[in-house]
Design a protein around this nucleic acid. Structure first.
Length: 402
DNA sequence: TCTGGGGTCCTTTTCCTT
DNA sequence: TCTGAAGGAAAAGGACCC
């Protein structure tokens, strides 16, 4: 029996959020549509839809339009007909409304996307149990030891998974199969939507090297700009640089990583389970708030964040001992502060109080746009039950700022 | 008229202890 | 008691990703 060749798949759902919306509202297919995030302020966006009608019967004219939206928020997803107007992900809603006022605007519905996410991952695990969760719409799968995982380089198994997901959920996906995660991730983009791309080690030069460096997972806008500053635009050009030269210009570990990535080398394993490191809650206000003038409002929001974060921790069975805040000022400058306490906690009042102390260490000279609360250094809530965990912190705190 | 929310990981800075 | 070096932990920031 020959040793199986390492085959790793990356699966990426096609237009995931939009596709889930199309399952509820098939009449919206083909229309310019954006899904916007801005949470609380978008609640009620769909309230005007006719009652009693089944969702597929709601006339297209009844849906909210981008032109009628007033307030803050960004686009999470834009469908292709909307993109033709220059609208794209991460764009402000007000700006998008100028470009494509007739686009339908739906509020992002994370709980529904998570439901579908759990379902398609369940389907995958039944077929190929070594699966790594990489967020709501993508996973890595180790095909190496799965029966049939070697046939046609993984194409047969990929096809089976694609069909099983479609049958169970109605959703399409694209899959890349390669010798490792790095290349599989790039391969899954080769043939979207509903594509399957098979890449072997000897294909790297032909299929990977012509791509821009940005296509490497881990090279973002900053690293790309730096590379371009050295005249390096494609992965092939990156591969042509000496390992030592890269180490000299980007640091030892980063340089080595860049070199390996360009040559399609990646030994990372498919990790089937992991523990969270931190949990947080944050919110952007409807308008910028002033630390003094809007003290009451800020205080209430602050408390609310601490309470929902505590509820998240308790529901998921975690406690943490590093408590921190995040502020975004009206000029978009971000500041964080955190403190480590003696005993881990998931108590709302403790989190609120320690976070309040962190806040006092920040000069609040500008108005605030966002406030966040974070708990890190998490530990799983073991046999020892909660309750006693709330007793952390020093007893002589001064009056809270909010 | 701008620019969400929830994460991870890495590097640099700061602070404390010896 | 002061000073400086060294090392580690905690804090802060930044890049990146979905």
């Amino acid at each position: 029996m020959p040793t199986p060749i390492r085959r790793i798949a990356h699966l990426d759902m096609d237009a995931f959020y939009a596709s889930v919306e199309w399952l509820r509202y098939p009449q919206l297919k083909g229309l310019p549509m954006v899904i916007g995030a801005g949470a609380a302020r978008m609640d009620g966006l769909l309230a005007a839809l006719p009652e009693g009608a089944t969702r597929a019967d709601i006339p297209v004219g009844a849906f909210p339009l981008l032109r009628d939206y007033v307030g803050r928020g960004v686009i999470t997803t834009a469908t292709y007909p909307a993109r033709q107007f220059g609208v794209g992900s991460a764009m402000g809603l007000m700006k998008a409304a100028k470009l494509c006022p007739q686009a339908i605007l739906l509020p992002v519905d994370f709980s529904e996307y998570r439901r579908y996410s759990r379902e398609f991952k369940r389907v995958i695990r039944e077929i190929a149990p070594v699966m790594e969760d990489r967020g709501v719409d993508e996973v890595y799968i180790d095909f190496t030891e799965v029966p049939g995982g070697q046939r046609e380089g993984g194409r047969v198994l990929a096809r089976l998974i694609q069909k099983s997901i479609l049958d169970a959920t109605g959703l399409g996906c694209s899959i890349g199969v390669a010798p490792n995660k790095l290349v599989a991730k790039m391969a899954s983009e080769f043939d979207k939507p509903n594509g399957i791309s098979i890449v072997f080690g000897h294909d790297v030069e032909r299929l990977i090297w012509p791509l821009p460096c940005r296509k490497i997972n881990g090279i973002g806008p900053k690293a790309d700009a730096r590379l371009q500053g050295h005249g390096i635009r494609t992965i092939g050009e990156l591969a042509a640089r000496e390992r030592a030269w890269l180490a000299g210009h980007f640091g030892k570990s980063c340089g080595a990583w860049l070199h390996d990535a360009a040559w399609g080398c990646d030994e990372r394993l498919v990790v089937t389970e992991s523990e969270p490191v931190s949990m947080s809650r944050e919110t952007t206000f409807g308008r910028d708030l002033h630390a003094v003038r809007d003290k009451a409002e800020l205080g209430a929001i602050f408390t609310g964040l601490a309470e929902s974060l505590a509820a998240d921790l308790q529901r998921k069975g975690y406690q943490g001992k590093t408590i921190g805040i995040k502020l975004r000022f009206d000029d978009f400058r971000i500041v964080t502060r955190d403190t480590t306490i003696a005993q881990p906690t998931h108590d709302a009042a403790t989190i609120r109080r320690v976070a309040g102390l962190c806040l006092k260490r920040v000069p609040l000279d500008r108005r605030l746009r966002l406030l966040g609360v974070r708990v890190g250094s998490l530990s799983k809530l073991g046999a020892k039950r909660a309750g006693e965990a709330a007793a952390a912190g020093s007893p002589h705190d001064t009056a809270p700022l909010f």
